[in-house]
Design a protein around this nucleic acid. Sequence first.
DNA 1: AGTGACCTTGACCAATTGGTCAAAAACTAG
DNA 2: CTAGTTTTTGACCAATTGGTCAAGGTCACT
Lengths: 211, 211
Amino acid sequence: MARAAETRRRTRSQEEKESRILASALDVFARNGFAGTTLDEIAAGAGMSKPNLIYYFASKEEIYRAVLGRTLETWLEPLIALDPAGEPLAEIRAYIHRKLEMSRDRPQESRLFAGEILAGAPLIRDALEGDLKALVDQKVAVIRQWIASGRLAPHDPYHLIFALWATTQHYADFDTQVRAVLGGETDEATRYAGAERFMEEVILRGLRPDQ
Amino acid sequence: MARAAETRRRTRSQEEKESRILASALDVFARNGFAGTTLDEIAAGAGMSKPNLIYYFASKEEIYRAVLGRTLETWLEPLIALDPAGEPLAEIRAYIHRKLEMSRDRPQESRLFAGEILAGAPLIRDALEGDLKALVDQKVAVIRQWIASGRLAPHDPYHLIFALWATTQHYADFDTQVRAVLGGETDEATRYAGAERFMEEVILRGLRPDQ
DNA sequence: AGTGACCTTGACCAATTGGTCAAAAACTAG
DNA sequence: CTAGTTTTTGACCAATTGGTCAAGGTCACT
């Protein structure tokens, strides 16, 4: 029991350190990209020294890989939650909502991911061609079913998914530009409410089957 | 005349060198970002030595600035071309077409721009808040006119523009992901044709006024 | 051929940075 | 308290890289 407690306690401490490192790393990587990030900056953000960082993660790339892996999981969740048994338009509406929520609440993850893809996805190409593609293919099949049953207008599901990804993530990844264009007046809540409204009124309307 | 000829000739040579440098720089910056780019790599791409690069541009940042400035101009053109006198849906359709064309034919510029914004637009924030905002505001007014005249469904023009930017640029900026998801089968022409078709059928349909 | 302006580059420098290492500090078990 | 284990870090190192500089090359014109 003492042993178990000890082990648990040590693990706890380790986990807490690692998570502090990953949080700091996410912040810095998202802002400066992989190349623009220094170990010292991550270390400072995590409140420890550079060698101590390396004690927990073997290299800068390993830290990056860990942050990215975590992000990828989070990133897939909203699409996973798309329910084949649900009502098509309501499901897509809910998906838009979840994605916008994610852009609003976790913009760093979105930007980290965007940076990795922009750079040609050197570290997650396999995941994209494997897990991601498999997931998308599966959901594309669901959407095709919806179309076949006449509950959704017939459009290419791949491009539908791309359009939803692009538009929702735009508000996180291009936040700087969105704010510049809207001017100082518009606050975050208004921005996201406007985005959601637009997507519901235009894209969802475009997806409604003729009747 | 001799003087003019000489001057012209020298200028030509300079321009040719500078444009070789900028072309190489665009390539490298778009792939690796500002921090990830080395002068040696740009120099190699331009077929000259690093000191020679510095002979034409004072610093790495100045090269970046030059490439970015050029890109920004190109980037604004399609929106500038949106004609207030045209038929609304046809104008927006043409805009989508031009933007997709740009993503397809100049993906590097799109990625360079995306990288700059992602990093918080350290060098073009002023341009975004100035020229870009002014241009967008102007076109937003046009779109509002179209809506007021009943030729376009009433939706927030800002979010419309964001959605069009996001979706069209997605195919350049997230090219790696798009290809991974679609699998090797789909070639470029098919991808862009599919994107255009989707946007016309869904977004344009969503913009059509009730009648 | 000579001259002066422009162009090009090898060699070099200083700063940054990813990562190492040995030693010290902190913690645990007996 | 002691011995052993884990954690932490100051000092350091080698590689990279932005930028300099002096020397030599090229070119147009006389």
